[in-house]
């Protein structure tokens, strides 16, 4: 089963490539807004400190 599973009836590159691309996009949509938020809040806090 395991070897068959990874082989994907010979289309492994395409199937796993698609799921890898999917994973990358889903994770990016989770992480990118989070990083942006941290940067935004830090910039605002910094600007406040300067006043």
């Amino acid at each position: 089963m395991s070897a068959d599973f990874w082989n994907m009836s010979g289309y492994a590159v395409y199937v796993w490539g698609s799921f890898a691309a999917g994973l990358a996009v889903y994770l990016w949509n989770l992480i990118a807004p989070r990083l942006r938020r941290r940067a935004t809040l830090e910039a605002i806090a910094e600007a406040q400190g300067d006043e």
């Binding site: 889903y26 807004p33 942006r36 938020r37 935004t40 809040l41």
Partner: peptide, 17 residues
């Protein structure tokens, strides 16, 4: 739902800015 989360978070960032 996953994309709704991303849109909500990005909207929050835009509002903060």
């Amino acid at each position: 739902l996953w994309s709704a989360h991303a849109v909500l978070r990005r909207t929050q960032n835009e509002l903060l800015l």
